[in-house]
Amino acid sequence: MTELEHALVALGGELEFPPTPDLVRAVSGRLQRRRWRRPLVLAVAVAVVALAIAMAVPPARSAILRFFHLGSATVEQVQTLPPAQQRPITAGLGPALVREDAEMAAQFGIRLPKGVAPQQFYAQPGMISTVLRADGKPVLLSELKGDQTVLFKKFASPATSVQPVDLGEFGLWLHGGPHVLMWQFNFGRVHRVETRLAGNVLLWLDQGITYRLEGDLDKSQMLQLAGQITR
């Protein structure tokens, strides 16, 4: 360093700077406000969309009896089911893909039970699905991630039982009567909705991922399978 540079360093120590304001308090206050605002905005957006879909179905318009929101899923129990057909469990999920391509399309990796290696996967941005075999029966596993990039919702008739289960951060077990499943892809943009009748379903939220298992299994079989995916 030259003499001039030393002189500049010395000069720096003699300069008058305004006192540093308390930025910790100001920044902390703004972060807290953001923390509360974002989930509130999302919750309101999800509720509005869910209600809009519900109200678009005439039979459901009259009586929404119960309402659950779980991660990327919304469950509503209505008096009268909207029209829906029995369709294959992968209906509307798009073409079958190899795992690598599906994970790329979904933008996250799927979690599978240990020792299970399905060959076909289905994906949308924020959602990935595959069909497993458990106790000799096909079971659809779907995993959803993100701020409702993909939203799916259900209508359950009063005959369908909806029970909370101790799984992940929060779980629901739906069984009994038929219920209608509606997938809504590209939330907030193109509202493509796929509808079909669904079987027994276990839904749970774990570390930001919403998991869904659907198949002709009972509660204990479904919980055992779920336990192999997340604990």
Partner: peptide, 15 residues
Amino acid sequence: SPEAMLLSAEQREGL
């Protein structure tokens, strides 16, 4: 400081 000794008050103002 050693650096401060390099400059008089007048030199600091000039610089």
